[in-house]
Nucleic acid binder design. Structure first.
Length: 353
DNA sequence: CATTCGTGGTA
DNA sequence: TTACCAAGAAT
């Protein structure tokens, strides 16, 4: 067993010297820490920085975000991915505004009840904003501790998180839980990396069982995820006589919920030609009277769990049968204010500019 | 417990 | 090119 006091000292001392200068580390505003932690879920620091800065300019306080339209929030999130994070954050911030008078709660029970705040984020906010010694176990922490303590549980399994939370509870500094948690993550991000850990630069290598046994490359244990499936879509860039195009708002649940897109359908077994299916769907599902033209290109877009292969058709929009809130006809200038997934941003760029 | 939910970077 | 990865949560 390692010397806990020395371990904490070496870890936190290193963090104080080497911590990166990040925009959400300028103060301990619970709202800023909250937003940063949501953005950082499964997302690299370098990707998050510009989004965080823009988001804070646009929604500087809980009150500002509470009063915002969801579409503005999604637009600010555009390109960051995992868009339910934005909708859950928006919803939870509204709840804090109304139920807690704008103050982010400081108990595990209350903060964990907020939408989008799971075990990791709860611990991150409680420790960093309020100095409460709660574990914040993310992928970095599991990797680092699997090596230091030689923990061989499969970190791909949900149940393993509790093993590491228990370990953190035994190790965490009660004097500075914020730095302790951040230092474990920072170490994982900078030194104790997945494929080639820089053990010779590691401030806690003397405490590391895996280093002593030379098995740091064998840890953590992580089973592979299975292969993703492919989905074939046909989409239409339809223009009316003034050059405007038809766009559609996606369903409020599921993939890319509430984002906008060019009207499209999934192609299954080709009982008819793809073009025929698209023409029929545009008429029946979208109520559009159209003249469908030729295929003008393809888009391939890779998600974490599936791949879209989109065949893009051009066409003429003659008329929309009825006004629906999920259908709009917009000009190239007007289309800019709607949040689109990256796959359809590619279509705007290639076929509607 | 396994799957769904994005995107861009990298070995 | 392929596979994996990056400060996870909801279902």
């Amino acid at each position: 067993m390692i010397d806990k006091q020395e371990f904490r000292q070496d870890l936190i001392g290193w963090f104080e010297e080497e911590m990166r200068d990040l925009p959400w580390r300028k103060d301990q505003d619970p709202y800023k820490i909250w937003v940063s932690e949501i953005m950082l879920q499964q997302t690299r620091v370098d990707t998050v920085i510009p989004y965080f800065n823009r988001f804070m300019e646009q929604f500087p306080t809980i009150e500002a975000l509470s009063g915002a339209e969801e579409e503005k929030v999604l637009k600010a999130w555009e390109g960051l991915g995992y868009y339910s994070r934005a909708r859950n954050l928006h919803s939870a911030v509204k709840e804090v505004h109304e139920k807690y008078d704008g103050r982010v709660p400081d108990t595990p029970k209350e903060i964990s009840a907020l939408k989008g705040v799971g075990p990791y984020t709860a611990g991150a906010i409680l420790s960093q904003a309020y100095g409460i010694p709660e574990p914040a176990v993310d992928g970095n922490v599991m990797r680092v501790l699997s090596r230091i303590l030689l923990i061989e549980d499969d970190i791909a399994k949900a149940s393993s998180r509790k093993v590491f939370e228990k370990a953190v509870r035994e190790l965490i500094s009660h004097e500075n839980p914020s730095y302790f948690n951040q230092a474990l993550m920072e170490l994982g991000a900078i030194v104790c990396t997945p494929t080639s850990p820089s053990c010779l630069l590691c401030p806690v290598r003397e405490h590391c069982t895996a280093f002593h046994e030379g098995v740091q490359h064998e840890l953590p244990i992580k089973t592979k995820n299975k292969k993703q499936r492919e989905v074939h879509l046909a989409a239409a860039v339809l223009k009316d006589d003034t050059g405007r195009t038809l766009i559609h708002k996606r369903a409020e649940k599921g993939l890319l919920a509430n984002l906008w897109e060019f009207p499209n359908i999934e192609i299954h077994l080709p009982y008819k030609t793809e073009k025929e299916q698209l023409r029929e769907a545009l008429k029946l599902e979208f109520g559009a009277d159209i003249a469908l033209g030729e295929m003008i290109g393809t888009i391939e877009h890779v998600f974490s769990h599936l791949t879209w292969n989109i065949h893009v058709y051009e066409g003429t929009l003659i008329e929309l049968k009825e006004e629906k809130p999920d259908l709009k006809v917009v000009s190239p200038e007007e289309i800019e204010v709607f949040p689109f997934p990256v796959s359809h941003q590619k279509m705007i760029k290639q076929f509607y500019k």
